[in-house]
Design a protein around this nucleic acid. Structure first.
Lengths: 229, 229
DNA sequence: CCGCTTATTTGCGCCAGCGCAAAGAGGAAA
DNA sequence: TTTCCTCTTTGCGCTGGCGCAAATAAGCGG
C-alpha cells in the first residue's frame, strides 16, 4: 500500500467513506510525480484516470485554438481533479491540468470510482456536491467576466486565492503566483494586472514582488471587490 | 395523477428509470403554470423544488448587484432545471429562472429526488452526467468570453441556439429571441448584437426581423465561429 | 560574483466595443 | 385605422483595456 487510507478522508468526496472503502481506494491508487510546468493530462485526452493532489499545486485550464488560455481553477492539496470522466463513458478531459510546482498526485482509474459509486450512494452524493460547487463558482465567474470591470475581477480573483491558499504572515496575507497566472484567473492580460497591482501598491493596499503579493489591507481589497461602483 | 409517466422518459435524467419509478415521480409532481416574463424562482431562494419544463421556454440567468444580468442557459421542453438543490442541504438556487413565454413545468420536491437517488444509482449517474455537461459548457463559454472577440461569441451563441431550439424552415433555420437575449447569451450589449447582425445581413448570412433571426447560410456562421482569425 | 533566464513595470498609441439618444418598425389591441 | 408599446437600428463620441517594446529587477546556477 502506498498511502495511508486515513489521509484520504481529507478529500471532500471521500469524507463519508468507510475505513474499508478508503482502504480499497488506497489500494487502487498509484502515485504520480510531476515536475513544475509539466502536465497531468491535456484537454481532449481520454479521461481514464482521476487524481487527488497529494502535494504541490496545479492549475486546471482551457486553451483556445489560438493558444490563449484561461485558468479555470487552481488545485491544492487533497483536492480531486479530472473526475468528470468518472461519469461519462469514453469521456475526455475538458481541461488541461498543469503542475505549478513539483507535485505528486494519486491516480485512480475512473472506472473504479464509477464501480464503487454503484453501491455507495454517499460517494455519488459527495461527488455531486463537489460538482454543484464548481458549477456555482464558474457561473459566478462567468457573470463577473461579463459584467464587472477588470479591477474588480482582479480583486475577486485575489480573494478567491486568499481563501484557497493564502498564508498569513506578519503584515498581511501572502500569495504566490505570477502576474500571468492572475491574469488568466481574472480574464485579462498580465499588463493590466501589473498596472492594477502597482496602483494598489501606491494606495498601500498590497505589496508586490516577483511571484508574490502581500495583501496589507484585505478589507480594502474586499471593498474594491464588492462595492457598488 | 397529473401527467403520463411515460412522457417523463424524455427527461435525460429519467431516461434509465423504471416504469415504477416514473410513476412515483409523476405522483410526486405538481404542475405549475407561469406567464411570460414571470419567474419560477429567484437566485437566492431556498431550493425546495426542482422543475421539469413541460411546455414553453425559460431562461436561467444571474444578476449582479447592479442589476446587469447574464444568461446562463435557455431551457426547453423536457429539460430539468433547479436541480442543484437536490444535492446540498439547505441549498439556495444559484440562478434565477424566468419564463420567456407562457410555460408550464412539473415541480417536485428536491428532497424527494434525493430520497430516490439513495437507492437508485442510475439516477445519481444520470444527474451527474447532466451536471458534467453543464460544467463543460459553462467552462467553454467562460473561455470564450475571456479570449474571443464579440463577433465570434455571437456566432457561437447563435449556433448553440440552433442546436437547442432552431426550427428548419424554407430558406434556412429560424430562431426566436430578442437582441437583448442574444446579448445576454454572448456577454455583450444589445447594440453590439444589432450591429453585428446588420453586418451579417449585408453579407447575406442571415435575415433579421423583430424577435427573429433566419439563418440563411449556417456554414458561413460556423466559419465565423470557428475560423482561426 | 557574473551572466542568463524569467518576471515585472511602464510609456505609448490604438481600437473594439460601449452606451446614449433619437429615429424607425412591427405587432397587438382597441 | 390609429395608438401604443416594445424592439431594433444607427450615428456619434468616448474610454477601458490591450499589447508592443524596451527598460528594469529578481532569482538561479555555476
Amino acid at each position: 500500500m502506498k498511502i495511508d487510507p486515513n489521509l484520504l478522508r481529507r478529500v471532500s468526496v471521500f469524507q463519508n467513506a468507510t475505513d474499508e472503502d478508503l482502504k480499497l481506494i488506497a489500494q487502487h491508487a498509484i502515485e504520480r510525480s510531476i515536475e513544475e510546468g509539466e502536465f497531468f493530462f491535456f484537454q481532449g485526452d481520454p479521461a481514464i484516470y482521476l487524481y487527488v493532489l497529494v502535494s504541490g499545486r496545479a492549475k486546471l485550464m482551457q486553451t483556445n485554438p489560438a493558444g490563449q488560455q484561461v485558468n479555470l481553477r487552481t488545485i491544492s492539496e487533497w483536492q480531486l481533479f479530472g473526475a468528470l470522466g468518472a461519469v461519462r463513458e469514453n469521456a475526455t478531459y475538458p481541461a488541461t491540468a498543469q503542475a505549478m510546482e513539483q507535485s505528486t498526485a494519486l491516480a485512480m482509474k475512473s472506472d473504479y470510482l464509477k464501480e464503487l459509486m454503484q453501491t455507495r450512494p454517499y460517494l455519488s452524493f459527495d461527488l455531486m456536491r463537489l460538482m454543484t460547487g464548481y458549477i456555482q463558482e464558474i457561473q459566478e465567474r462567468y457573470r463577473e467576466l461579463a459584467t464587472e470591470k477588470v479591477e474588480r475581477r482582479i480583486a475577486r480573483a485575489l480573494l478567491r486565492l486568499v481563501a484557497q491558499m493564502g498564508t498569513k504572515v506578519d503584515g498581511g496575507i501572502e500569495l504566490t503566483f505570477t502576474r500571468q497566472d492572475l491574469a488568466e484567473m481574472s480574464g485579462t492580460t498580465l499588463y493590466t494586472v501589473s498596472r492594477v497591482l502597482s496602483e494598489w501598491e501606491r494606495q498601500g493596499l498590497v505589496e508586490t514582488g516577483r511571484e508574490r503579493v502581500l495583501i496589507r489591507n484585505p478589507h480594502g481589497v474586499v471593498r474594491i471587490a464588492e462595492e457598488l461602483n
